[in-house]
């Protein structure tokens, strides 16, 4: 009996290892603790199922001990998501000359982040700087400032700056005081005044801090630079949805940005220098991570209806 218990393949030993992982990390659980204390051979079906645990180890468990919790579990990265990806500093370059207001980026963003049509993580604005200048379209994200005013005012440490440059919100910490909305000079944040869109549909979805989903009534939401995509090494949702090649996204430390439409990768410093790039409200000292290339050589100049004539 003892041999059986302590042999490397013993079920008891396996379960002891297994139990320490906690319930939250596995899509199977109930029945485990019971079998741990009272191993009965009769229960086993003999059919082994291979599972991947949170330590990235493949383990085998008898199918009799598996039951479905029927609930989406929190993504593994939630505990990591305050730290940021090492060796990276994300930067977005928006080429205003190419924006033709296709709004594919907005559609994708609102679909992914469970936003109502009036809520924006990203908004394409029609701009006109002065009376005699030509209007242009300007996609405006959260600027992911290196000196973020919103983070400074948060009284509960719900919004934070990561080492890879991303500013995120932990909606489970947010108390809805909206100080950050008042502090943000770019109006990048929006508040869930009412129940979010599709609240019923997202009821059982586990909260993903890097996606801001599911949205919570009474909390603040904003652009996340699609941190969940970046963790997987993919470009943000908006960047890859643009049909006009407006967005370049990349790692500032690597000095390279990739166009989401054409897939071309270019040197960040050259792109910024050759096109006289600028950042929004530079004089505030917020040091944004979003750069704009001026709307020159445009193929489409939007018309603004003159309301004064």
């Amino acid at each position: 009996m003892e041999d059986q218990d302590y042999s490397p393949k013993s079920r008891r030993r396996f379960l002891r290892k297994f139990g320490s992982l906690g319930l939250g990390t596995l899509a199977v659980s109930t029945g485990l603790t019971e079998s741990c204390t009272n191993p009965t051979k009769d229960l086993e079906s003999g059919k082994k199922i291979t599972l991947l645990n949170s330590k990235n180890e493949l383990v085998e468990v008898d199918s009799a001990y598996i039951s479905n919790l029927n609930k989406d579990l929190a993504p593994n990265h939630n505990s990591e998501s305050r730290k940021g990806l090492p060796g990276k500093k994300f930067v977005l370059v928006v080429d205003l000359a190419k924006c033709k207001n296709a709004r594919k980026c907005m559609d994708k963003c609102q679909a992914v982040h469970q936003l109502r049509p009036d809520q924006h993580h990203l908004n394409v604005l029609l701009m006109k700087d002065s009376e005699h200048t030509a209007p242009y379209y300007m996609p405006k994200h959260c600027q992911h400032c290196d000196n973020p005013p919103c983070v400074k005012v948060c009284p509960v440490d719900a919004t934070f700056k990561r080492s890879d440059g991303i500013v995120l919100i932990d909606n489970e910490r947010c108390i809805g005081c909206r100080f950050c909305i008042a502090a943000c000079p770019y109006s990048a944040r929006s508040f869930n005044w009412v129940e979010p869109k599709d609240a019923e549909k997202y009821k059982d979805v586990a909260y993903d801090i890097e996606k801001n989903v599911p949205q919570k009534k009474g909390t603040v939401t904003k652009c996340t630079f699609s941190a969940d995509c970046l963790r997987d090494g993919k470009l943000p949702y908006c960047v890859s949805a643009c049909p006009n090649g407006v967005y370049y996204f990349g790692n500032e430390y690597e000095d390279a940005v990739t166009n989401g439409t054409s897939g071309e990768t270019v040197s960040l410093s050259e792109l910024l220098a050759q096109n006289s790039a600028y950042r929004l409200m530079e004089d505030l000292g917020t040091a944004p991570s979003v750069y704009y290339l001026p709307p020159k050589d445009r193929t489409l100049i939007p018309e603004i209806e003159d309301t004064h004539s």
Binding site: K88, F249, G250, N251, E254, T258, G263, E264, T265
Partner: peptide, 11 residues
Amino acid sequence: FYVKREFGLMR
């Protein structure tokens, strides 16, 4: 000829 970067290949 390319160099591998974060999100693509730089010529």
